[in-house]
Design a protein around this nucleic acid. Structure first.
Length: 115
DNA sequence: TGCTTGACAGAAG
DNA sequence: CCTTCTGCCAAGC
């Protein structure tokens, strides 16, 4: 009883979270990428990186946003979406030998510079 | 109600 | 650098 669910979202918060996520993704500049974790943190839920991915995968119309600019913190692109790499390369994003985005060069860290 | 699945992250080996 | 494991949490079944 009284299990600690302080970090779990209410339906309301989940709805707002989804809205914020799409909002943030829409602001990623051309030629830059950001991570699932950063987006979750910006939306106010640092522990919900996985939910950012879920949102982008399930939201109809997410493909109208630059969601190809969202990668893992390691620079890996989304599984089963080979076109993502092409889209990024078309805007000048460089990939390393291991097939990961050159995060050092393209990672976009909005507003704050700490972390 | 309980177990499994991920467009994840970080640590360990 | 890669794989595996643990922690994380909403969804599905």
């Amino acid at each position: 009883m009284m299990k600690d669910y302080r970090d779990r979202m209410t339906a309301d918060e989940a709805r707002r979270f989804g809205h914020d996520v799409l909002n943030i993704v829409g602001q990623i500049p051309r030629g830059r990428v950001t991570t699932y974790g950063d987006i979750a943190a910006l939306a106010g839920w640092p522990s919900h990186a996985r939910m950012v991915g879920r949102t982008l995968r399930l939201t109809p119309g997410a493909d109208r946003l630059p969601c190809h600019r969202v990668v893992t913190v390691a620079g890996r692109t989304a599984p089963g979406w080979s076109r993502q790499r092409t889209l990024l390369e078309e805007e000048g994003v460089r990939f390393l030998e291991n097939g990961h985005v050159d995060m050092k060069r393209h990672r976009w860290e909005p507003f704050l510079s700490e972390k």
